[in-house]
Design a binder for these strands. Structure first.
Lengths: 232, 232
DNA sequence: GAATTTTTATGACTTAAATCATATTTAAAT
DNA sequence: ATTTAAATATGATTTAAGTCATAAAAATTC
């Protein structure tokens, strides 16, 4: 990770978008840009929290480890997204790790300046609160799914979520380059099981594959498999 | 659930404790107290979000359902605790249900007044943000555990968490009256499996039972079983 | 461009945990 | 007090999903 002075535009990230215009010079004076390569670990679970990050370009995965081999991917942060904010609250170490899935630029804000930003920009604080509420809801839905939903449904859910977040390219394939192992980690299952489920979904005609890309053929049926059904 | 005008003291809950003294009369004028009986469902997953709740007395479980039979208990809210706040953010229905586990009194605040309270009390907003950060961290730790930790460890974790939240009575038993089914739902496993794991923990000498109460004998060993271990 | 590492692909096997079945005890309701 | 319902206790069986083993294909590195 190489520090670079002024790459980001102080306009596009979640913080810049929700802060007062008057505060932007302060942000510009306090930010640090970092160039990351594919695979770079930006911070690790257990590291002391020193600041909060934003993705300017590229893609970052946020994950938790279990023993040395296994991980669970919590979310993907793409352009504009905040990450490292799980370090806020009553703990002094990051509860998650973050790694670049592709080369890009991230913006680092020290915790002190971030906290000052919260104090000064009540709208940003409010928007961040709403963002936390959304993330918490998603997280608890996934908890429920990990506890009760079969792997096939979780894979379906993962694919629907990826398409929702990253969209599709002109040929209709989900616009993300992700390894099967990462897809497994995002689904909360092993590589082998996810591989089998992918095969089943292909056989069911719900998705199709081309090299490493995945296309959803029947979003409705797949969504039903993945669905957040509330019983009466 | 019976509406009662003025039971709560406008002092003890998470909101009252973090709002300006000047705002308390406004709270007093806008709150509604509700008497709940054991088993009363206060709101259900999918209900439109109309407001936020606080526990004045009693105990509330917050849970998500899976098909008609299974549920996953997300958390327990005891005196002072906020609940229903998962209804905040970009959705208009509660993503969880809440039910009284024992008789008590809850305080209801309409969404409009709650949002006004946030606008006026920046410290409350900030504290709520930190609370969300803590809850999100906990939720994601549990996600990881549901994905990778065996049931025995999850039961150990549940017991450690319950003792931490509710403390022990003079005889050393965890100060909560909870059914095995609810303990199973909190651990994200079936009643039968949790029953077996409880037996194992008893045989291991880590816990002991008396009627419906559970005592932790070796908190250290149990914590290791349950632990949030970060590998290097 | 050869060599090594990583990712993908699959079959065979094992196991943890769910399901099913059925007592027994305890608590609630009439 | 008696019936009914709910919670607890356990064994037997099934199954979903993890582990192990190994090979081919891609991607990186030297």
């Amino acid at each position: 990770m190489i520090q670079k002075a002024n790459i980001c535009d102080t306009k596009s990230c979640f913080m810049c978008q929700n802060c007062l215009a008057e505060w932007h010079p302060a942000i510009a004076g306090n930010k640090t840009n970092l160039k990351v390569k594919k695979g770079d670990v930006i911070f690790k679970e257990g590291d002391p929290v020193t600041g909060i990050y934003f993705v300017y370009t590229g893609l970052v995965k946020v994950y938790k480890k279990w023993d040395t081999e296994k991980e669970l991917i919590i979310r993907f942060a793409k352009e504009g997204a905040i990450f490292g904010h799980r370090g806020l609250g009553n703990n002094r170490t990051y509860p998650v790790s973050a790694a670049a899935m592709e080369a890009g630029v991230v913006c680092y804000i020290s915790l002190e300046f971030f906290e000052a930003t919260l104090k000064v920009n009540s709208n940003f604080t409010y928007q961040l609160l709403m963002f936390f509420a959304d993330e918490l809801r998603e997280s608890e839905r996934k908890m429920r799914n990990l506890a009760h939903m079969p792997v096939k449904g979780r894979v379906a859910e993962a694919l629907v979520a990826l398409q929702k977040q990253f969209g599709t390219n002109p040929e209709g394939f989900i616009n993300i380059s992700i390894s099967r192992q990462d897809l497994a980690s995002y689904s909360g299952a092993t590589y082998e099981t996810v591989f089998r489920m992918i095969n089943e979904l292909v056989n069911d005609g719900l998705i199709s594959l081309s090299a490493k890309s995945i296309k959803i053929n029947k979003l409705d049926t797949l969504s039903i498999l993945a669905q957040d059904i509330t019983f009466p």
